[in-house]
Simulated assay, not measured.
Amino acid sequence: MKFSLKAFMTTLALSAAACTSLAETSSDDMNKSNNPLTPVVGLNLHDYITSSIFGTDETSNSFNLRGALPHATGGLPQLARMTIPYQTVPGPDGDQVSGLGDINIFDIFLVAGTETMQFGIGPYFIFPTASEDETGAGKWQAGASAVVMNPHPWGLLGGLLTYQHDFAGDEDRPTQNIATLQPFVIYNIPSGVYLRSTGIMFFNWETGDYYIPIGFGIGKVWKLETGITMNLFAEPQWTVAHEGVGVPNFQTFVGLNLQFPITAN
């Protein structure tokens, strides 16, 4: 399955910018649009286009529809995020298999911090919702997620760590014992443009497989008069260290982040 998501997002952003008056985009707006701890309603369209995979000539594609919702259940400020993936991956017979992946949710408790240091921690759940064996793990999984963010006028530094382990599901499927670490390096330049590096490191503690990508990309943030923020970006990522086959060698991460001026009550 081939997407024209990049063209779609470009058209959407340009159309919105053309038909809607724009407000001045500050460095704070740019940081908030890239910060996973920003407590506003968000909608993300993310696509990982993997054009080279270790151990095979096949390609893959992972499109993620992601929503974020701030809330204050129990009087505690939190940010819930749900990701619905649609995967296209190499199949067992040399073909490609497409289908819904495993939906994941984390709920981050926003720990009191400062203007220059923000923290969050909370539970992480993965549900075996995949429509095909190849697009999911077939396991119920739980774990934890933690986020640290360090905003500056020039940009943003931080990291998102997750850990997951299965506790139920298909006994014939491999055990899931996985950690990921996503660093955030954002450097703001004039006119709402920024440079970025956000490659997700992946570690399978059960098999010993891992891969560490390094990304270098560019993005553009628009602040609309309505208060909505749009963030369009593209980031090529190269794997600089790995173990095992079937992991990405080169991929391109493209996305559109939308944030709406709605906060938790």
Rank of each mutant, 00 (worst) to 15 (best):
G208M: 06
G122T: 00
A146E: 10
Y194K: 05
G120L: 00
I108L: 15
L161S: 05
A234D: 09
N265E: 15
I212Y: 13
G138S: 06
S145K: 10
F63Q: 08
L224A: 07
A72D: 13
L100R: 00
S191M: 13
I186D: 01
N257R: 12
A137K: 10
V221H: 04
A7T: 13
T38G: 11
M9C: 09
I84R: 02
I214C: 02
N64V: 07
G122C: 08
A146N: 08
P70E: 07
T175H: 14
H46T: 14
G159Q: 12
V185K: 04
A7Y: 13
N188Q: 11
T50F: 06
E171C: 04
L43Y: 07
P128W: 04
T162H: 12
E206N: 14
V147K: 07
M30C: 06
V221K: 04
D47W: 11
A7D: 15
G101E: 05
V111D: 09
T226N: 12
Q141T: 08
L258V: 00
V97I: 14
P174H: 03
A142Y: 10
A68W: 07
L224K: 03
P248D: 03
S27M: 01
F250S: 01
I121W: 10
T59H: 11
T56S: 14
A17C: 03
A264L: 05
G169H: 08
L100K: 01
I49D: 13
L160N: 13
G138M: 09
A264K: 04
L45F: 15
N34D: 06
F109I: 01
M201H: 12
